[in-house]
């Protein structure tokens, strides 16, 4: 069964057509990268997939159900494009990650042992177990990005949608992230990853959808690094590569 099935999706934001007739399918267990230059519509596409942008035209099903009737939200995990965790009041790493379970809990139920275990597991996955009691604001940018991912993981989703989780993140955090996503993928989970630079994640990608000016430019095997840039860490989409064919990916470093 497909996790997401978007057919001929058109999205209009602020009076502008941002996505034009975009069709993307993500099957269960797939690891799909969404690539493309800045402003090509990657964020808009994943926000549309998780139901945050209305469709002007086209159809979208999530786990086989039309979005309007979809109710099994705990099956989805979403990591938005953010520079920091945010919020005007201090919160501990543990509190933020635990909030990722909220959608699974009924209003009057207490946080159970299972809930605590899921939170501990998520923290472990991103290598922040020892920081659970620290205020989020005291963490580095890369660590905060990991907190956002742990929050999504704590909900034990079947599919994880991540919007540029590696932007501006140190090499250490990128490796940890690759480990966590590999783990999820190996256990049958699906991943939709918006990335601008794949880095250590390149080896995990099964398929790449490349966007350009709000349309799908290509959809297929991930761009292969070429020549002496063959190390997976060198797969790289240039911010202004919009007009160039996908075959040039990896050549600009």
């Amino acid at each position: 069964m497909s996790v997401f099935d978007l057919q001929h999706g058109t999205v209009v934001l602020g009076g502008r057509r941002i996505l034009e007739e975009v069709s993307v399918t993500v099957d269960e267990g797939e690891f799909v990268a969404i690539l493309g230059a800045n402003g090509s519509g990657k964020t808009t596409l994943v926000r549309t997939l998780v139901g945050l942008n209305p469709l002007e035209a086209g159809t979208l099903t999530v786990f086989g159900t039309p979005l309007a009737r979809f109710r099994e939200w705990p099956r989805l995990g979403y990591v938005p494009q953010r520079l920091s965790v945010g919020g005007g009041v201090p919160a501990t790493v543990g509190e933020v990650v635990a909030s990722g379970r909220t959608g699974r809990l009924s209003r009057f139920r207490r946080f159970s042992r299972d809930d605590r275990a899921a939170v501990a597991h998520a923290l472990e996955d991103v290598g922040l177990s020892d920081r659970a009691g620290d205020p989020v604001a005291t963490l580095s940018g890369g660590q905060q990005q990991r907190v956002l991912i742990a929050r999504a993981l704590a909900g034990e989703p079947e599919v994880l949608v991540l919007d540029e989780p590696t932007a501006g993140v140190d090499a250490d955090s990128q490796d940890t992230l690759a480990g966590a996503l590999g783990h999820l993928s190996n256990n049958g989970g699906s991943v939709v990853l918006v990335a601008h630079e794949l880095g250590p994640l390149a080896g995990l990608i099964g398929r790449a959808v490349v966007l350009s000016h709000g349309q799908v430019q290509s959809d297929g095997p991930p761009p292969q690094p070429e020549g002496h840039h063959a190390a997976p860490g060198h797969v790289h989409v240039h911010p202004h590569a919009d007009e160039q064919p996908p075959s040039t990916f990896g050549l600009d470093r």
């Binding site: 998780v50 939200w73 919020g87 990722g100 909220t102 959608g103 809990l105 209003r107």
Partner: peptide
């Protein structure tokens, strides 16, 4: 008090709260 958990999640990140089905 009753809505504490949900209010925290919404005030922390409205988009994520949406996708959590809150």
């Amino acid at each position: 008090l009753v809505f504490l958990r949900e209010l925290f999640a919404v005030c922390q990140d409205e988009d994520v709260a949406h996708v959590s089905g809150l």
